[in-house]
Design a protein around this nucleic acid. Structure first.
Lengths: 142, 142
DNA sequence: GAACAGAATTGGAATAATTCCAATTCGCAA
DNA sequence: TTGCGAATTGGAATTATTCCAATTCTGTTC
């Protein structure tokens, strides 16, 4: 599946099951909301989005769903200093650029760069995840 | 000054002034506590440490001092997912490895690796800071 | 060295993000 | 279809951090 695909309901459920996530309507809605609009929303923002289609969903459930999606590697959690966690449905290896205006941008990261970072560590380190965050000022028209 | 130096009181005050930080006893104590013991304490842990020598210091002041030190680049703030901010007096460019047991280790990062990361971005991006975090399992005897 | 002004500190209250909990509801397998 | 474990819900609780108003300190000027 290409990262930018918007899934039909039935394939959405299928993707969830295939990743070991029991497909519930809440999980589908939360996941779909991340796929539809590729910004980097916080849990609160996801909550606001999904309320439109699922008005009875609770914030606790949004947190639960996001956790499950992250744990099953369908979604990435991104953390910047003193900011609430943001969520990202882009699964291709990438870094994040964090704008002073608050924007978050995906930055492609080729495999060889990732490998080089991995090589900074001794072999007996077992690396689960590498996180690269840039902070600064991005040009306006981007 | 080498990163591992433990400063005499008078040079400590001098380092602070030179960095534009008005040297107060609280700031000195907080900074010294980070220099003395090179773990990656949270604000609470720093609070606990400095209370031993400065029993009347308040948690708010510890936060203030840490902020001032970070803003004046004498200390780095490190953030991991869903964990309180940790503080680090190692100013050499380095990444962090975050153990599943909760340990945080400094990982040296050569300039050329940093440059390569910088090159992932278009030239018109103004990069203030690059953060590299590893997550995983580190060998026990380290 | 006293007086002043601005900066820093303090303790407690307030906020923001996230987690916890107990009760209900749901989804799947027998 | 019934039952069981998993998921959801709403609200309360927790945690980390910030805010605020009152006090104290620091450095400067006379």
């Amino acid at each position: 599946m290409a990262a930018s695909d918007i899934l039909k309901p039935e394939s959405l459920a299928k993707v969830l099951s295939e990743h070991g996530v029991r497909p519930t309507s809440q999980r589908e809605t939360v996941y779909q909301s991340l796929l539809n609009k590729r910004t980097h929303p916080t849990a609160d923002e996801v909550f606001a989005r999904v309320r439109e289609t699922a008005p009875t969903i609770s914030l606790a459930t949004v947190y639960n769903c996001l956790d499950v999606l992250v744990q099953n590697k369908l979604v990435r959690a991104v953390n910047f200093e003193r900011a609430p966690t943001q969520y990202c449905a882009n699964l291709a290896p990438h870094a994040h650029f964090h704008d002073e205006a608050g924007r978050t941008l995906d930055i492609e990261m080729p495999t060889e760069v990732i490998d080089q970072l991995r090589d900074l560590l001794p072999d007996d380190f077992d690396v689960k995840h590498i996180e690269v965050n840039f902070h600064g000022r991005a040009p306006q028209n981007d």
